[in-house]
Design a protein around this nucleic acid. Structure first.
Length: 206
DNA sequence: CCATAGATTGACT
DNA sequence: GTCAATCTATGGA
């Protein structure tokens, strides 16, 4: 199997400038590719979550408006929004919508396609533990705050159509309290790399 | 397989 | 001061 990601097929701006829910579903099955010189890392996205704009979604970092941390969520679709959490982890999002219109898609899990050996070195683990969670995926791909604001439409990191899932399952998002009733997590049910806690017991409401 | 505790720092109330 | 869009180790069924 020879995996090539020619510039001609790379996803362009208008793919990303749509609403976060549509973008989330269309990102499933796509390849996230890091290309720099002769080094290539690639994964197939199998689990994502949509986060909506200011005042629309209490779980979204954009809920209470623009701040220094979340400012990339208000940028044009196709940028990368990386945040630091729990004192030690990074998570990455693909920004959706038009400039000024907040929204993003959290990349939660993926299947390794190219560069698995480097991912194993970075993770200190193998198999599905490589990329079956948002912070694990960032660690495997080498993504941190330096990459916040990167444009996926050009430059070393980009997204290519790859292999669409046979079906898409829609569930509550993971690790949030408010906004649980919105079913904004999407995953490919047959992928072994989907993060394990899909049906985790929800934390009590009050 | 499941449940729980601890890690560790920055953003925000 | 509180708590987070998480992960890992550990202990039990």
């Amino acid at each position: 199997m020879s995996l090539r990601f020619p510039a001609s097929r790379r996803l362009r701006r208008r793919f990303f400038t749509r609403d976060p829910i549509t973008l989330a579903m269309d990102l499933l099955g796509c390849a996230l590719v890091w290309k720099k010189g002769d080094r290539v890392l690639a994964v197939r996205l199998v689990e994502v979550e949509a986060y909506l704009g200011e005042g629309e979604d209490p779980a979204s970092h954009a809920w209470r408006g623009r701040t220094a941390r979340n400012s990339q969520m208000f940028a044009t679709g196709g940028r990368l929004y990386v945040y630091f959490t729990y004192g030690m982890h990074y998570c990455m999002n693909v920004v959706s919508g038009k400039e000024g219109q907040a929204g993003a898609v959290l990349l939660r899990a993926a299947e390794p396609l190219v560069g698995e050996a480097l991912m194993e070195r970075r993770r200190g683990r193998g198999g599905r533990e490589l990329t079956n969670g948002p912070a694990k995926l960032c660690q495997a791909m080498g993504i941190d705050l330096r990459h916040n604001g990167l444009d996926l439409v050009e430059g070393p990191l980009g997204i290519w159509p790859h292999e669409r899932p046979g079906s898409i399952v829609r569930t509550p998002r993971i690790g949030i309290r408010r906004g649980r009733e919105l079913l904004l997590r999407f995953h490919d049910p047959v992928s072994p790399y989907v993060s394990h806690r899909s049906q985790r017991k929800p934390r009590s409401e009050h």
